[in-house]
Design a protein around this nucleic acid. Structure first.
Length: 395
RNA sequence: GGUGGGGUAUCCAAGUGGCUAAAGGAUGCAGACUGUAAAUCUGUCAGGGUUUCCCUUUCGAGCGUUCGAAUCGCUCCCCCACCA
């Protein structure tokens, strides 16, 4: 019986790390480089799974922490797993809840991981992290929750996604090196426990990713990579703090990718800017995930490509007054449902009128945009023009 | 015609002698958003300037009291309710 999981590199030039590959799962095959859409609660916010599928999306992600609290893993298991529960027929991955240890603990999520100042807007519901695991207060009802590596794996086995992640601790940017190192070691111990748990109830319908930590420190990243390479993971993900600004992030990803195993698919956790993806692909990353495209869609922003302007933004804000009477589509080159049928003026109106349809239409556009962006990247690699493509889109 | 209530910035609405260019909403105008407690959050919102400070004009209109008025008094205009 052949293994229903596989990773095959299909195109790569000798002197380049950028490559195309296929990741096969029991629910289908993913072409890489590719983007994973976030369905944290088992739903793409702002659109249906069918609408997302229609954009050409191949891969969707859910979250252990959220689905554990609501509706609970048993309910999903009774459906026969996340695919049947959510209606997404393709490959899926579940995040472990590790990121929530961080985001619920440090308030301003991105501000911290990217090194901006900590604004701590919300009450912190993380109570304590111990060697055993993390104690939370549920954001839903305030009840005490405990998430351990073992429990995260057990939950994810019930959720039944193709790929699962081990519980890890995501360290904030401002953390000192010694603390980052200690946290990394604990993540490694948690990963070992996750592996043990995973294989003790192995069902051959899932595979596990390892997660590389180590913050912005090259020697710590190397140590973490040695650990991840030594474990029986199917794939690997880059997590943790990637630096205070974009250039540092690109450098951290680049040296991390230099040492990671080339025979496993590699995922860059939580990164999804257009330029960020280019840099990641250049370093050899296979997959990316990010809430950004779907979140900014609900906030009125549409992804666009403006390669001619060096500091051009990667999106336009349809709520801006200049679009009030703009009769053009968001992008006349785009073939999405939104661009084929509606003007910027109409979208502007929907957001001004607070009609949910505005968020839906932009979610569809942004999803299609990401799909097309990844297709363009893959085509450039397959055609042997990656270097030119990269140069053309990066300055 | 009588009695009572009320007129505050684009709108709604606090404030009833100085700390008030005037709370709070809303709207408007912008910004942020990267393993989603996010259809959320932040800034700004009389005009002008040499912009951590200064000047001008504002609380229905006018006049007045006072060192000082959106706040007190008088007159007028308008709105609402009830009674004739």
């Amino acid at each position: 019986m052949t293994d229903s999981f596989s990773y095959t590199i299909t195109a790569q030039k000798n002197n380049e790390r950028a490559h195309c590959a296929l990741i096969s799962t029991p629910h289908g095959t993913i072409e890489t480089p590719n983007f994973i859409f976030c369905a944290t609660h088992g739903a793409i916010k702002g659109a249906t799974m069918e609408q997302i599928k229609a954009t050409g999306a191949q891969f969707v992600l859910g979250n252990t922490y959220h689905l554990w609290l609501q509706p609970g893993p048993d309910v999903v298991e009774k459906h026969g797993g996340l695919q049947r529960f959510t209606g997404w027929q393709g490959p899926m991955l579940t995040d472990s809840g590790g990121f929530q240890i961080f985001s619920l603990g440090y308030g301003g999520v991105v501000d911290e991981i990217k090194g901006k100042k900590d604004r701590s807007l919300r009450p912190r519901s993380l109570l304590k992290i111990t060697e055993d695991g993390a104690f939370f207060r549920s954001y839903l009802d305030g009840s005490l929750c405990f998430l351990s590596p073992e429990r995260s794996v057990q939950i994810q086995q019930k959720l039944g996604a193709d790929f699962i992640l081990p519980l890890d601790e995501c360290t904030p940017f401002h953390m000192k090196k010694e603390q980052t190192a200690a946290s990394m070691s604990r993540s490694h111990r948690w990963e070992e426990r996750s592996v043990r748990q995973f294989f003790s109830t192995f069902n051959n319908q899932q595979r596990m990713y390892g997660i590389v930590q180590g913050g912005v420190y090259e020697d710590l990243r190397r140590e973490s990579i040695d650990f991840v390479n030594s474990q029986p993971f199917f794939a690997q993900a880059i997590g943790g703090s990637l630096g205070g600004e974009k250039q540092q992030m690109y450098e951290v990803v680049d040296f991390t990718m230099r040492y990671l195993s080339k025979s496993r698919p590699t995922h860059l956790l939580g990164i999804g800017g257009l330029r960020d993806i280019l840099e990641g692909v250049q370093s050899g990353v296979d997959t990316f995930d990010c809430v950004h495209p779907t979140r900014i869609a609900r906030h009125g922003c549409a992804l666009i490509e403006k390669p001619e302007a060096e500091f051009a933004k990667e999106h336009i804000n349809l709520k801006n007054r200049i679009y009030r009477e703009d009769l053009r589509p968001i992008d006349d080159q785009c073939d999405c449902y939104t661009c084929r049928n509606f003007t910027r003026s109409y979208l502007h109106h929907l957001f001004k009128a607070k009609e949910n349809t505005g968020g839906l239409l932009l979610t569809i556009h942004n999803a299609r945009f990401m799909v097309r962006w990844m297709e363009a990247i893959r085509k450039a690699i397959l055609d042997g023009h990656w270097a030119e493509f990269y140069k053309q889109h990066c300055y």
